[in-house]
């Protein structure tokens, strides 16, 4: 098994944090994993993206020329990356922000109004975690409990209340989508 996921959004939406947590979760679940962020001048324009490769075996390249999954938190990211996704792959859109339709009819498209759900929960900054809840429900890439543990680990010394609200956000995203792969 080799699964590559590309996460992308505006800087400040927590894209790198959720990628880091996903990679940490994959490591805790016993997989080989690589995490590669965009860096330098590339990120100065305000966009951020990262690629997480998860495999049973050694990982050759941490770069995804054809990611299996794409998680996008804003519209420019959809335009930039949707055509990279492998045939039959899946796209997860934060539909509160991404109002356009994806042009990929050969992929599964999951629309999650993450920002709206985040508002309801009471912290608009948790949209990223909501997306991860939905993403892991569908893909099952990392078990939820392991992911949540990793998320806490990656958030480090942040306040207990923040961790708590992110747990709720994760559950909300997880419950939003009925199906799984």
């Amino acid at each position: 098994m080799m699964v590559k996921t590309l996460l992308s959004g505006f800087g400040g939406q927590g894209v790198l944090m959720m990628g880091h947590a996903l990679a940490h979760g994959a490591m805790s679940a016993g997989y080989h994993v690589t995490y590669l962020p965009s860096y330098g001048a590339e990120v100065r324009g305000g966009t951020a993206n990262c690629t997480i490769a998860v495999s049973n075996d050694e990982i050759a390249s941490p770069i995804a020329s054809e990611p299996d999954h794409l998680v996008v938190l804003n519209t420019p990211s959809l335009y930039t990356f949707q055509n990279r996704v492998a045939r039959g792959g899946s796209l997860f859109l934060n539909s509160s922000i991404v109002s356009v339709e994806s042009s990929r009819h050969d992929c599964r498209i999951y629309k999650i109004p993450a920002s709206e759900i985040a508002e309801k929960i009471g912290n608009p900054r948790t949209a990223n975690t909501i997306m991860m809840g939905a993403f892991l429900k569908v893909t099952g890439l990392v078990p939820s409990d392991i992911y949540l543990h990793s998320m806490e680990e990656v958030m480090g010394s942040k306040k207990k209340t923040i961790v708590e609200i992110n747990r709720r956000a994760f559950a909300a995203g997880y419950d939003y989508l009925k199906e799984s792969l």
Partner: peptide, 10 residues
């Protein structure tokens, strides 16, 4: 190289 420096691995 830059990729090795930026990437995370266990």
């Amino acid at each position: 190289d830059g990729m090795m420096g930026q990437m995370m691995e266990p």
